[in-house]
Design a protein around this nucleic acid. Sequence first.
DNA 1: GCGACAG
DNA 2: ATCTTGTCGC
Length: 272
Amino acid sequence: MEPVHPEFVPDPSLSQTEMEALQRNIAEAARFDDDLGFSPDTMARAGDTPDDDQTTLTGGDRTTAPPLVAGVDQAFVDDRAVSAIVVLRNGEVIERVSAVKRTEIPYIPGLLSFREGGAILAAFAELETDPDVVLVDGSGRIHFREAGLATHIGVTLDVPAVGVAKSLLCGTPAQSLEETYPEGTRIPIAADDSVETCPNGTVIGHAVQTRQYDSPNRYINPLIVSPGHRVSASTAADLVEGTADGYKLPEPTRLADSYADEAKAASSDPSE
DNA sequence: GCGACAG
DNA sequence: ATCTTGTCGC
């Protein structure tokens, strides 16, 4: 798939001020409410009975096929970024692609999309499938200008997108994230003074505990989930919870992560 | 000036 | 993100 908004394609040669200006425009074009082509509750998972998705004469419309969910993740080799995309439906891999691109700028908090965005869009250009929603590694609305990596990619491609991060970039959690929470716990993240584009108190995402150990002194940190584009904060959390399958990371993200490592190894293999 | 900051 | 062994727990 190709960019619907070429003017938003991340350009690493821009000045920092120009990058920030572009992010403000992207945040204005972003929709942080649900505009999905499917019902978030049609998320069947691996192991589910296939005929669960057939029509019920008297029930609601259950003819809708489970959505195509894509996971995107990157790996790095020297000055190159390897982006991998894995598309799943019903827990089954439908397609996977990867692309390699040189990184033009270093990692700068708040400007991640200008470092990784090029490789990601190159990978999407290779993708034949049109995913219903994309899970991007990093923040979406939880960003200083509400334009994190997931928002940048989602708006540029005009595809529903969700940000899945392992740590909090900004914003204030309703409860401390230092505690150990049981699976299923969802803690709202509110905008604070560090988020300069929206009122303080706005819920810009959630900490989501997709996995937790049963026993004593070992614990797992929650994921930080936020809307990227065309998804609300609560639906973003629903989608991540609905695609997680026994691991902390949702399946599409987990598979993209390992595929990126494979592609990275292959790209730096002399015998190839 | 200092702190804080996804991957 | 990346560099890596051991260690805990089911």
